[in-house]
Design a protein around this nucleic acid. Sequence first.
DNA 1: AAATGGTTCAACCGCAATCAG
DNA 2: CCTGATTGCGGTTGAACCATT
Length: 486
Amino acid sequence: MGRAPCCDEKLSLKKGPWTPDEDQKLVAYIQEHGHGSWRALPEKAGLARCGKSCRLRWTNYLRPDIKRGRFSHEEDQMIIQLHAILGNRWSAIAGHLPQRTDNEIKNYWNTHLKKRLAHRGIDPVSHKTSSAGLALASSWRPLVSTQLTHTTQWDCALAEAEARLSKTSSIKLLSKESDTTPAATHPSAYFMRSWKTGVEDTLKPQFGPVKLESFSSVRINCSTPIPKPVSRPSKILQDWDSVLGPRHDLPNPFWQNSGALALTHALKQFSVGRMNSFRVEPAAPPQARSNSFGASGEAMSSSLAEIMFTGIDHQRSPDSTPGFPAAAEAARSDGFDLDDGVAPEDYFSPNSTLHGPDSDLTPSDSGSPCGSADESTSDYFEFALHQQHGFFHSFPPLPGGADHQDESPMSTIPDTFWHEDQHDSGRLQIHNVAPDGVVPESGGLELIIPMDFSTAEFSHQFESLCQEVEEEEPMQQDPAVCDNIP
DNA sequence: AAATGGTTCAACCGCAATCAG
DNA sequence: CCTGATTGCGGTTGAACCATT
């Protein structure tokens, strides 16, 4: 047995525009009693309206916390950015502009912003930039990024996460069959695509299939032998910087900011070194990191650097780097020397000149796409890696029950290494794998990239999403990406 | 001044998810 | 657990307003 009908259609309820008297009655009633049941409200308030109409009038017009009047420039940009990601999910968009109603935003979009975008040569539906509008858009987009506060960007990232996880739109990423899976729309998928264009396509390592591991990660199985190490990581990184560097030629700002560079380093390590485990985490603010590592805010502690590089430098032969000729040749031509006097930690020092204008550990200018100099932003990345003679290991048990391998020498790292606030952050894991669990001396790499929007880093990808849409079709056709999707 | 066309936006409609009896 | 009310949401409508002819 259900409830009584909401509105008795036999009653002649008024429709159409509300009169000031009706408004006054509604406001007075709600201010005194709250709205309670909308169905019961009209009768109690003396209104010949249906409850639905009352609710709409209140939520869209009479509510006291509604900001009316012209939209600010910041609100304009916010709506445009959110719409690029959320589409016509007006209520979700309105959630990021608390004083605006979804109805108002929807109307504003349809009457103003849509036309403005079209005038700039941007398709208001797909947010693709036409060639005619490219110049206009390029001069406009940076403005968007720099004018949004960091908090806003973070909120945007959350909105994006929400959108990615729920959207079943036409966005097609890594899988022909997974168009509507959350994984296909997860930021890690974007990362992978960026990586493929930023690293893989540039340096031509022979990576194998890419498959979607879960909604929150992407897995790469590298079928080719793991390149043998050629040099100490710091040297290699230095060389590879000159090869890869910040990818200002790529539309995705992800590769142009410090965090991207840090991840690029990660992939360099992954490619060049024969390390078995690798971890990149957006670092906590200096204060927090100081607590967890006992190190200074910007620079990695020497003990951590020791963890990173011990066992690598002294096991490497500079002879072969199949798949990475540029780096190998660079290392050779530079007369690689194990005792070149470059301490590992120096490489990561914000004052180091070893790696050029690398801002890995240095706060960026506020004008950069990666945001402000706020110490809490993602400008800080830290690395930790470990080499164990070419055998498999994964990460030590993480607080909170992440997967682990007891045999991991990483488990010898003090518990304080794993800061409680960090294990939920985006992280990147690389380790050897084998189907039977026995990992060969070479071959079989597994790259798992679980990432979430807890990191401000991904908010910096936000702005690039529109442009990335234009890259989706080529990615979709990439056999290396598509052919091995289950 | 009237007609016409375009714009704005409050309000409505219908659908789907959620909730309550 | 089922049924139907309630709520929330996005799409659409249409009256009011404005600009142009």
